[in-house]
Nucleic acid binder design. Structure first.
Lengths: 220, 220, 220, 220
DNA sequence: CATGAATGAGGGTTCATTCAT
DNA sequence: GATGAATGAACCCTCATTCAT
């Protein structure tokens, strides 16, 4: 059952990720996927109980390792330097997403669409993610939570981590490299760490009191 | 004559933005839109030559003011302090996107899907955006381009600017405020400026040479 | 009312004939016609009480003069040579159809489609046509009705008269001339007359008794 | 596997021929056809890639045997009496068309409408038909091509062959028999042969020089 | 008399899914 | 386990027509 079926299932998922990512979930037909995986369309309903189930399988195949990864680093925070843990988590996430850049783009895009996948699943995953992210960042910041709230940081952190994959074309054209390129990831990682460090410093120094030009703008 | 038709067109666009954003372009039916706008579905084809045309009208209604805004600030860069211009541009973009938060989410999500809207239109818009962003950031950085490339910065900047709207639910839950809230935008703006300032400082100081712990991680 | 409206009505009919002929009645939209006649589509419904009414107007504009023409010749049969009358009728029909070749093609095609135009109108016109054709041919044949029935002749005659217009493209390619060309009509007329003459002769001679090879064929 | 599908395909074609013939291609809905064939409308797109494809399948199902038939007789012309071949071809065409009288009416009507079926297909078929017809008639006429051009004859021949089916209602009412009736076909065949024979004779005798009354008519 | 807005009915087609083989 | 036939629901769109202006 899983001997032969495993091959088939993987072939389907692989084809699905590629097509869902480029054409969107709703824009991809079950026949497209079957054609690319060189299978009969009926197999998809057979193996995944429908198109919906296939999408959910894709999401699971992203979130499970992703959350495991975060969980691991969160656990280490108690007996290792929290900053090291945070930095390592960031690195791991970037590498993981780079290795699965299509799936990454797919996930972070499709979960912003309602009624596409059961909100319960998504909510549960995002809640866990938020928990780990919050734990990691607040540990790294130490006592200094008041000035720049952790909340703000993890939102920006999420943006930092997903941006290269959601704007892969932008990256290609502006940077000359694809987000899946290890060299790009290395450089990007450094850049994110710089931002984190600076954010920590902002908190620790008081010389930022009257720092901004604070331009007053009128908008349409 | 255009007095009546204008009302209808606007009603359609408004309904479309709401539904496209929440349910996705492909997941929204023309009847959904018509029902919400309390109109006959045929009007959509009548006014926008089909669902596709409606989506394009939405995109245009985003990109035109958005790019105009960037262009304005880019022009001022020659006789005003470039940093001030950059900061003001960021503020304006955030306010504009906040005022149009649904449309913003819609745009930055849907353009990552191929074959949904003609790539020519999108490419042209993104090229202009890139040009203005590059001009603004490199002016603001002054001579210090070498260390941290402008390329990296504008990618991160793009992420910074769109993240709150792409993850609005995240913002709500983590921050307790909706991205459309002016207070949130104000705080978020400050936070982005902090990041920008820090990035500039990074360039200006040389004491960052061997700063990072550089954790070596093995990934799956 | 009829001062301005007459012009408009004629423009509509002219456009309709052209489009109905080339694209078929159902294949032509009211907007096509309006566009060609440089009018607002609503005018068509206004002047002809709908698309159906427009088609009927086209048919009437064919059958009225066509039947008048036949009627005239039929009347003369009593005090002129019946053969001369028949020949003249044929000539007139050919010339009339040549002058209105598009309309001719339209009529003889569309009336073979049910539910397109009220069968009553068509039946009435065809009944009259049949009556005149029968009267003309049987007069021309004189007493010799028995051998080759008049019925057969008028069916073939009808075919002879309409064929060049229904197969105008065929005529163009095979003969190098369009059915509207007067020279073609002249030659074609002579040819039809030859056939009529021969048919009459067939009746008058008895030497055709065992004339045909009568090949027995099996068909699929 | 093709055992089941074949049945369905044939049922669709049969229903389509009936409805296309009576109501016209554009006047027939895919649902009409499905209802008559007691099938689901989707089957039509499934088997024929759309309504258009179904029409084309109908045309092919006419032209293929029709042209094969002409081709066969054309081949025999070299070692058999050409007149016999021509006569036999005529007989076969009439019988074939009689057996498929609905399809025949459909074909000869719909190909006079543009943009209904790809002109390439039609042109190719008509070109072949013209070639065979020309070969058969000119062989039968022998050396006597000058007087009555072959071109004229094949146009009239085409008319002769299709008229009873295009005007089937006319036939019914005038002749009391349906064109599908074998007895009618037999009689009609004889009549066409008479015409052919006469046409040949016209060529062979010179006494036709100043034969026609040539009535001069004035037309509107 | 003419027009553009607006409508409702219906048409062709697509698609996920099921089922017998 | 795997396939092709078949289905029914739903979607986008077209179109003739009407109506207020």
């Amino acid at each position: 059952m899983s001997g032969q079926g495993g091959k088939t299932k993987e072939a389907i998922i692989e084809a699905a990720i590629e097509l869902f990512t480029t054409k969107g979930f709703k824009g991809t037909t079950i026949r497209d996927i079957a054609a690319r995986a060189k299978l009969n369309p009926a197999n998809i309903s057979y193996y995944f109980q429908g198109k919906q189930g296939l999408l959910e399988a894709c999401l699971v195949s992203f979130f499970e390792p992703y959350l495991t990864l975060l969980e691991e680093e969160k656990k280490k925070v108690d007996w290792e330097d929290p900053q090291v843990c945070l930095h390592r988590a960031i690195r791991k996430v970037l590498v993981f997403q780079s290795d699965n850049h299509l799936l990454t783009r797919l996930v972070w895009r499709e979960i912003t669409i309602d009624s596409q996948v059961s909100r319960e699943i998504i909510s549960s995953y995002l809640m866990k993610e938020r928990y780990y992210l919050k734990a990691l960042t607040s540990s790294a910041l130490g006592e200094n939570h008041s000035a720049l709230p952790v909340s703000m940081m993890i939102i920006q952190l999420k943006g930092m981590l997903s941006t290269p994959f959601l704007n892969s074309q932008y990256v290609s054209e502006v940077w000359g490299m694809h987000p899946k390129d290890p060299y790009f990831i290395e450089k990007y990682y450094e850049s994110v760490i710089d931002w984190i460090q600076a954010a920590v410093n902002v908190q620790k120094s008081a010389l930022y009191v009257a720092r901004r030009p604070s331009p007053v703008v009128k908008t349409v």
